[in-house]
Design a protein around this nucleic acid. Structure first.
Lengths: 239, 239
DNA sequence: CCAAAAGTGTTTTAGCTACACCCATGA
DNA sequence: TCATGGGTGTAGCTAAAACACTTTTGG
């Protein structure tokens, strides 16, 4: 492994020190809620995709930028939900291990090894439209079911836990489903999204009525699949 | 006005640069919800009480520290609700004006004049127990009704607005009333707190039933005041 | 025609609102 | 005893849950 130059790392001059963001990127797939997790090179360490904020960049824009880089998508649903600021949450040695596994030898006191406060966001996006792009330090970025995550570094497990809590709370308030599904979808698919998020079964008939009476979707033509049963309508979210 | 030495200001070496907190401190008084607002010396500028985070201090602890300094209270109810990170939210010239009005002449590029990301918290406390202590830069800190605030610097008005929204959302979930009232209180007082927060009248009889059925309070002895009417019970929150 | 999935109608239930009523107190 | 504020009971409404029923499709 060749020794790389620390000059290739994000530069302190361009970024706000001690401040990072982490994003919990939700996608729906195979009747389960998934999250994008990246794995760092040669280290066996898993983490939420995150990044740093440029000195002349809005916080929200920094998160959007990272999200676009990693998923190829623009215009994703994004919501800030908490800021994690314990002194001992960011471990310099974890970051050091990651950098060393990538062939860097950061000098003592390098800004990336310092304490970080992290602003956490969650994103909702259409799983089928994403092509995960790992960053320079990571091998891969893959979907993991929320209930089957690998061990994560630092406090990232807590961040995910809180993200799921907030997502559940916002489920009825904020058209959450619309961002996790393709533009047109069946009522069954929407129900499965709700069930995946809430972690419980819902009764089909009442769910249908609830969604329809909430006036959030419009009905389109019927969908004809090769199922030995009645063809369902397709729906899409309003506005 | 004598020229003061910038060395008396919070030192960059001890604090995390670019990071601040602001606190929306709620108190209930005279049937109205109030907020503590401080006024900077000789400037006519009003702001939320805030502060900076020490390099070896938990974010939450920094906020608690500031709150204790300014109110004399420990153990207050505190909740983080949002982080404000727009580039143009913090105006260097506003901070410069404040410092100059206090007799400082901060050099160009002083860290306090730089961009700040601010983590916002709200606090709930018993109005009657507070003795507001203004900080070194400010003349006074006083209670203002939420609906009658003076013009605030930077984005502090937005911060207050969001704080009130979140407080309303949390009203039923988080025993909000318990922190704004003395340990024992009448049902009427609690109802007035709810009304002040929600900004609407509630019907007395149903409010009583709702609180009692929520099993959040215990009833104590009756209160005998000099009113020409039935003496109300006193209640206190459980646990 | 049957099984499976989709859609609708109907009954029951629970929670909330409105309002009537009673109680306690001091003037 | 009357005015005022505190406390409870109850009828009526509405939203949600449970369940029965019909419809549509491929095999």
């Amino acid at each position: 492994m060749k020794e790389k130059n620390s000059k290739d790392l994000p530069a302190l001059e361009c970024h706000i020190p001690h401040l990072a963001y982490d994003s919990v990127i939700f996608g729906y797939h195979d009747s389960e809620l998934h999250i994008l997790i990246l794995e760092y090179h040669n280290s066996g360490l898993y983490a939420l995709p995150g990044g740093f904020v440029k000195r002349d960049e809005n916080l929200d824009d920094a998160v959007k930028r990272g999200l676009t880089e990693r998923t190829g998508l623009r215009e994703v649903y994004l919501e800030q939900f908490s800021t994690f600021g314990k002194v001992n949450r960011s471990k310099g040695r974890v970051m050091k291990k990651i950098l060393e596994a990538n062939g860097y030898a950061p000098e003592q006191g390098h800004w990336l090894l310092d304490r970080f406060i992290s602003v956490a966001y969650y994103a909702l996006l259409d799983h089928s439209k994403v092509t995960p792009v790992p960053d320079a330090l990571s091998d891969s970025m893959n979907w993991y079911p929320v209930d089957g995550l690998p061990p994560l570094i630092m406090d990232h497990k807590d961040i995910v836990k809180k993200a799921v809590e907030v997502l559940r709370q916002n489920l009825d308030k904020k058209l959450v489903g619309s961002n996790l599904l393709p533009p047109k979808f069946t009522m069954r698919a929407l129900q499965q999204v709700y069930e995946a998020i809430l972690g419980e079964k819902l009764t089909r008939t009442n769910f249908q009525r609830k969604i329809l009476s909430a006036d959030m979707v419009v009905r389109h033509e019927k969908q004809f699949l090769g199922g030995a049963h009645k063809a369902p309508y397709l729906y899409s979210f309003k506005s």
